[in-house]
Design a protein around this nucleic acid. Sequence first.
DNA 1: ACCGGCGGGACGCCCCGTTTCT
DNA 2: AGAAACGGGGCGTCCCGCCGGT
Lengths: 189, 189, 189, 189
Amino acid sequence: MRYEKGHRENTREHILEVASQRFRRDGASASGLAGIMAAAGLTNGAFYTHFESKEALLREALVTALTEQLARLEDDCPAGCGIEAVIRRHLNEDELAGSEVGCPSAALLPEISRQPERTRKAYEDALLAYISALATHLPDSGSSNSRAMAIFSLMVGTLQIARAVADTSLAQDILEGGVEAALVLARKS
Amino acid sequence: MRYEKGHRENTREHILEVASQRFRRDGASASGLAGIMAAAGLTNGAFYTHFESKEALLREALVTALTEQLARLEDDCPAGCGIEAVIRRHLNEDELAGSEVGCPSAALLPEISRQPERTRKAYEDALLAYISALATHLPDSGSSNSRAMAIFSLMVGTLQIARAVADTSLAQDILEGGVEAALVLARKS
Amino acid sequence: MRYEKGHRENTREHILEVASQRFRRDGASASGLAGIMAAAGLTNGAFYTHFESKEALLREALVTALTEQLARLEDDCPAGCGIEAVIRRHLNEDELAGSEVGCPSAALLPEISRQPERTRKAYEDALLAYISALATHLPDSGSSNSRAMAIFSLMVGTLQIARAVADTSLAQDILEGGVEAALVLARKS
Amino acid sequence: MRYEKGHRENTREHILEVASQRFRRDGASASGLAGIMAAAGLTNGAFYTHFESKEALLREALVTALTEQLARLEDDCPAGCGIEAVIRRHLNEDELAGSEVGCPSAALLPEISRQPERTRKAYEDALLAYISALATHLPDSGSSNSRAMAIFSLMVGTLQIARAVADTSLAQDILEGGVEAALVLARKS
DNA sequence: ACCGGCGGGACGCCCCGTTTCT
DNA sequence: AGAAACGGGGCGTCCCGCCGGT
């Protein structure tokens, strides 16, 4: 072990962190490896000692991002905090503005669906973990995850549309409409 | 006049049609102009006589696709057909499999949100027209379009997630859960 | 027809000519497309309108070079010129020094043998035409091409070794020994 | 001393052995150091403790390969075995198929000729030793090495051409024609 | 003090979106 | 009107050197 313990792993995780932000901000196919590596303070020559390919980086960066989102969810919304807090954590102005550190699903879903199965499977696993956590905040926690999945789908679609439209106040309205609808879904007996 | 009247316009619309399919299938930044033009039976060089740039093509292709979707909605779901028919037109196996001629929002929203304002404005206008049409099918048609927008958001998110996961039967479950949730939103008093 | 007639074909053949020289001088895998195109007065962006890939370029450049060699052989050594003239056309100081416009077999054979079958087939065809022409200069012209092939093999090996050794006078000796041996093979009753 | 005596030297020779095979199989410029080191069971970074550069590796690997060929020649063809045995040791199906452990001249000569003088000198020395050994098998062993060099040139060219053509039975014919011609050169009074 | 994990640039082929020139 | 060329950048891999722990 020549470098300080964990050096390699630290570098790898740093690249993953930067990549997960770039992918969310600029899109997966529009993000170049050289730009990602430069943003990580490295050159592209160092990439292939850490990852097999861009596809592998995307696969791992997706898991990284979803895992982070899960950790943030648990931090911000402890058990019993109520479903509205969870919903407002997804649908707010910060999320609207900054996709960089926001929900990877909202930023990348169509591109994920065009990835090879291996990548989609990795995303699926991480997503289901997230949905399970989300489900614990539902009033009728005995229900399956299907309800949580629908609420999540609504939030993802709402956030994407609010980001896409040109009119700022329209975006706000869409966001608020999404919050209300999500609450309806959550509270439905 | 060497070409029959309207030849040029036909060509332009043919390119738009092909482009709108390619963009939905492969993504906007992953679709190349050369591939689009070749699929349209033309050569690379002919592009710039019809469009100013790739961005302009995307902008127009988005409107084309949304306009087509609106026409199809009105064809398949005449007034009074009931909201469930509308929902099932969005969330079904065909849509799951073929993004090529499906909902452009489900296929492209994150990329749209990264486009310049002009493109987002064009999308916004076409989207609002679509949402208005969708709203006419809601039970309480007097309400604003906010409800319709939420239902649409839910459907877009649901379709994207169902497309992205690797497990086929899971995708089916997600789709069905989306249908139920959409009905809840639609019927809410 | 927008560019002057034959412009495209002229450019294509110019690239082929430059490439066939570069490949012979520097080797096939050591020659870069950018360098070849720059030497042809073009940029690398223009390459793929003329050739499908580097492999296709190599394939065609080989045929080009062999065809040129055949034309030169027929120019320099008209029928009845005697076999020695043919041999000395292959084994002389000019050939020793300048592989750039010399025998493509001597310059590239090991790399050709590592190419896909399609390339090797193209080389084979052009080579056999060359061998046939060479055979017409043999005394016993009724014999098969086998003798001509052996003489050609000898000349190729001789030229390669003479080029590879460091000692100049040794190279001369090898060349002269090759000439004598080729004459022996040619005159064998 | 952490490693047993000679460990370092063994490693060095192991790299040389692997490199000499890779160079013959894939060509010198097409063989990467990373691939060679990986095939030797080492990592990239260990290379420069054993060799100064890729060029130095090639230089030494050439000598290694030629020295091995000489040893094999002496093993397989003891004094008095007859020249035909020697010729058939060079021109046979095994040599046709596997350049990996075959004649380095046949596999690499054009690339050697493009190397710096130092490399060509090293090759020259090893080649001349090989030619001398080959000459001892000629009937008129008093003659200079020129005859042996010509025979060797013929065999190298023959093997290269037989390897390069696409038609398998043609390759066989070329090989057999080479054997006959080599015998002619060897037996010439 | 040696030696190898790790990183640095540069360049490989290929293809992009765009402009120019006949 | 559109074929041909441009320049840059995509990902991947090259050869090589620089730290720093055993």
